[in-house]
Design a protein around this nucleic acid. Structure first.
Length: 586
RNA sequence: GGUCCUAUGGUGUAGGGGUUUAUCACGCCUGCCUGUCACGCAGGAGAUCGCCGGUUCAAAUCCGGCUAGGACCGCCA
């Protein structure tokens, strides 16, 4: 018999009706000659009642049912007595009197409860992922993810975007992240690479005249994992021809607005705020600031430059920064010990120490307060601090100051519950530096990627002072996460060649790696630009999770392995032979 | 590549050299129970304390190594 309806959707409109339900036994409550069973499917849970009067045989079967058994039942939907209504359940006003039950499959006792908020290791959850995914919150997260992609497909289709697939087996490029390599059987010693993103292909599609392209594209990067990073992840990849950066941003805002509306019912006001990269770094110490709370960084150089405190003086003389954040009412909340543990933490960003002052009725307190006796008002004013506040100073190179104070700002805001968790704070960060210096390679590398268009007025800097150049690039930030990013691309060979040169490529190397692309630019390539949104992070944030594993059906663990299938694994010698591969022991 | 943390019945935990026959809760099994929904009641089973080695009269407990997992730095154009 066909299923009449999902368990979670049985309501008053079914009163008196005969229904057939199929699902998993959530819980059996056996009162002897009366048995209640909660039956679960993807839409929720409904209570089944078994007793002699509804079906003696069904009652007998119900006696043998256990958690996670799969059953099919037939019965009548009835209202519950007033005193039996369960207001905690969506289906709490109804129950189904069962006269017929069929056992479809038995189940072992699962290693953890199939319910929300379980407290077990991720390792165990991943090993039994098919059970983990039965849990309502996991179903909800993956359904939210599906709603997001569906809303995106609709919006981009309505806006004349064409969905085009690009290859997964492609050419390795040394720039950027480490590639996942796939050995070629046909060409000994040759390898494909899995794409880090479809970047060049989508640009070529612009060259081909498709004008608006998009793809829900899997990307692969062989780098170490984090809570918001998996070796394979999904991007909403877009590219358009003939549009300015602002036009692309507007179009993207429309997309985000649509997604927020259709998945969470949240209305979003446009346009979104835009902040230049420099300002984000200065005010928040981050290129992806969480603007749901204040506690911004303040420059303390002027206020402390005449103070006889050697640490600050030396740093300022060497051209470094002295900046601070002021923790509202932080003097009481943070003990000396708490602050010392923060100091310990920020050492990993290269900070030498963490100076602090507590603002009291009569000046400052704290180990270094004595140095600032004569500058209390100045410093309070510069830090915008009042009695009861805690001022945290970091003095160092710009990057260290930004990293350390940026971290302190967000960690303290979370500890003091200053973050409005119901908010979705989107923000564009624009005008990024084109290059950054790599300590590893001892040269400049592309901050975004080598195809990013410099600002028009900075093009000449490519040959003279590349590090001063800024880019026509933009990141979309949500609640302190980099949600996506894009740029206007270079569409003229001459500029692209200058770019490669600035990156330290020889002509031969540029030709070898990207010759096919340079050639393409010769054949009437349109101006173009685009953007990619990290779908996993987006789904994570809209599901209120703090790890993208929660919105990926079968993710890798933090060591890049998959406990369920036990990948990666060794392979047969024959396979290696076919691929002309030899392996060495560690 | 580096730093830090964790490992005890199915699950989550207590115990930090000998009062241990290893604590508690949930789960599981058996029986009883017609209005439960954290059902209740009575009883029961279930652990070579991650692995290897060392210290010691004695190690779940202390030390070292290994393995597995987690967080972070580097890395992630």
């Amino acid at each position: 018999m066909n299923r009449t309806i999902y368990c979670g959707l049985v309501d008053e409109s079914y009163f008196g009706q005969e229904v057939c339900l199929k699902g998993w036994v959530q819980k059996r409550r056996d009162l002897g000659n009366l048995i209640f069973i909660d039956l679960r499917d993807r839409e929720g849970i409904v209570q089944l009642v078994f007793s002699q009067e509804f079906g003696p045989e069904a009652l007998e079967v119900a006696d043998s049912l256990r958690s996670e058994y799969v059953i099919e039942v037939k019965g009548k939907v009835v209202p519950r007595d007033d005193d039996a209504i369960n207001s905690k359940m969506k289906t709490g006003k109804v129950e189904v009197e069962i006269h017929d039950v069929k056992l479809l499959n038995k189940a072992k006792t699962p290693p953890f409860y199939i319910e929300n908020g379980i407290n077990v290791s991720d390792d165990l959850r991943l090993k039994y992922r098919y059970l983990d995914l039965r849990r309502p919150e996991m179903q909800k997260s993956l359904i939210t993810r599906s709603k997001i992609t569906q809303a995106i497909h609709r919006y981009l289709d309505e806006n004349k975007f064409i969905d085009i697939e690009t290859p997964y087996l492609t050419k390795s490029t040394p720039e950027g992240a480490r590639d996942y390599l796939v050995p070629s059987r046909v060409y000994p010693g040759h390898f494909y690479a899995l794409p880090q993103s479809p970047q060049l292909f989508k640009q070529l599609l612009m060259g081909a005249g498709f004008d608006r392209y998009y793809q829900v594209a899997r990307c692969f990067r062989d780098e170490d994992l984090r809570g918001d990073r998996q070796p394979e992840f999904t991007q909403i990849d877009m590219e358009t021809s003939f549009m300015t950066a602002e036009e692309i941003q507007d179009l993207t805002e429309g997309l985000l607005q649509r997604v927020m509306k259709e998945t969470l019912g949240v209305e979003m006001t446009l346009p979104l705020p835009r902040m230049i990269w420099n300002e984000a770094m200065d005010r928040y110490g981050s290129d992806k600031p969480d603007i749901r709370f204040g506690m911004e960084l303040t420059d303390m150089a002027d206020a402390v430059k005449n103070v006889d405190f050697k640490v600050f003086k030396t740093i300022l003389e060497k051209g470094g920064q002295v900046k601070a954040i002021t923790v509202p009412n932080g003097a009481e909340k943070y003990s000396r010990k708490d602050i010392e543990s923060k100091q310990e933490y920020i050492k990993r960003f290269g900070a030498m120490g963490l100076a602090w002052l507590k603002v009291t009725e009569n000046g400052f307190s704290g180990p270094i307060a004595k140095f600032f006796k004569n500058d209390v008002e100045n410093i309070k004013k510069a830090a915008n601090a009042s009695v009861g506040d805690l001022i945290l100073f970091v003095a160092d190179k710009r990057k260290v100051v930004a990293d350390a104070l940026g971290y302190l700002r967000t960690s303290i805001a979370n500890e003091l519950d200053m973050v409005d968790k119901t908010k979705f704070a989107f923000l564009w960060v624009v005008d990024w530096p084109l290059f950054e210096y790599s300590e590893d390679f001892h040269r400049y590398i592309a901050a975004h990627h080598p195809f990013t268009m410099p600002n028009e007025e900075d093009i000449d800097l490519l040959s003279t002072d590349p590090h001063k150049a800024h880019a026509q690039s933009y990141d979309i930030v949500l609640n302190g996460y980099e949600l996506g990013g894009g740029s206007i691309r270079i569409h003229q060979r001459e500029i692209q060649e200058k770019m490669f040169k600035a990156l330290g490529f020889t002509k031969e190397k540029a030709e070898d790696q990207f010759g096919f692309f340079l050639d393409a630019l010769d054949y009437g390539f349109p101006p173009h630009g685009g953007l990619a949104i990290g779908l996993d992070r987006f789904a994570m944030l809209l599901s209120g999770k703090d790890n993208i594993r929660e919105v990926i059906a079968f993710p890798k663990n933090s060591k890049a392995s998959e406990p369920l299938t036990d990948a990666p694994s060794t392979v047969a010698q024959k396979q290696l032979d076919e691929l002309h591969l030899d392996t060495t022991e560690e």
